[in-house]
């Protein structure tokens, strides 16, 4: 248990939120994408967070039980949304099916925007936590001055 633990945990939060932000950006950018390498329209991506005990090695997991109450956050999975695509009648579109319908990604822009704000706020919270830990470490250096 030292200052680097707090910094490491906050840093993991920053990384996780940034990854979430990238996913949201990708969803927003591809809101009208009808063609993907896998075929079909773009499918909305969602990430899964998981709390993992903050240990540097396996020995620490075995020995130091109280320290492991600190948990890092990690993105463990990227889920692909399985919602049915939105069909729009656009017979002139090159990706239209034989009935003239084009499959568009089923992405709700409002939902993406709210998630984006949430990710930003969480990121800021982690930055504040890191700043606070840093302040503590800096003032500890002043002992005896």
């Amino acid at each position: 248990m030292d200052f680097s633990t707090g910094m490491r945990v906050s840093a993991s939060g920053l990384t996780a939120q940034r990854q979430r932000m990238n996913t949201i950006s990708s969803n927003i950018a591809n809101i009208n994408t009808t063609r993907t390498p896998e075929g079909g329209p773009y499918r909305r991506k969602d990430i899964v967070f998981e709390a993992i005990p903050d240990a540097r090695n396996f020995g620490e997991i075995l020995t130091s039980a109280p320290d492991l109450k600190t948990q890092r956050v990690q993105v463990t999975d990227v889920l692909v949304d399985r919602k049915a695509p939105l069909l729009k009648y656009e017979p002139d579109h090159p990706d239209a099916n034989e009935d003239g319908y084009v499959a568009y990604p089923n992405i709700n822009l409002m939902e993406e925007m709210t998630n984006m704000i949430q990710a930003t706020r969480s990121y800021e919270a982690n930055v504040s936590a890191m700043q606070a830990t840093k302040d503590m470490a800096m003032s500890a250096l002043e002992i005896g001055r």
């Binding site: 967070f49 109450k69 890092r72």
Partner: peptide, 14 residues
């Protein structure tokens, strides 16, 4: 401090 940082980092972990 470390435990609180951990809580903040995991504020959105299901």
């Amino acid at each position: 401090q470390n435990i609180t940082s951990s809580n903040i980092a995991n504020a959105e972990t299901p």
